[in-house]
């Protein structure tokens, strides 16, 4: 059997404002998710962040994490997505 999925990619897109990273990180923190890597740019006020996170042992289901991130996205007026990393690996690695 293959190893269970352990990583996910969080992408955040939208207009920049204070505290985006703090609030996204907070949601991940309360679910016991470790951030492995962050890449972030702001181009003419447009915020773009990609996080690689470890979801090997979160304290809740993947659906709950996504729902909480969606709620935050609504509050901040951003687009936040979390996807298991295998889809990116499948498409870009042989």
């Amino acid at each position: 059997m293959e190893n269970p999925v352990s990583k996910a990619v969080v992408t955040v897109l939208g207009f920049d404002s204070k505290g985006i990273i703090a609030q996204v990180s907070h949601v991940l923190f309360i679910h016991d998710i470790n951030i492995l890597d962050i890449s972030q740019t702001v181009v003419s006020g447009y915020f773009n962040m990609i996080m690689l996170v470890d979801i090997t042992s979160p304290n809740c289901s993947f659906d709950v994490i996504r729902d909480d991130l969606n709620a935050l996205a609504k509050k901040l007026g951003l687009e936040i997505r979390i996807q298991k990393s295998e889809i990116f690996e499948a498409m870009h690695q042989i």
């Binding site: 990619v9 992408t11 690689l52 889809i87 690996e89 498409m91 870009h92």
Partner: peptide
């Protein structure tokens, strides 16, 4: 390791 442009490409395709 997957890079930023690959992630953005996948999101754009979807």
């Amino acid at each position: 390791m997957i890079n930023t442009s690959e992630i953005m490409e996948t999101l754009r395709m979807i």
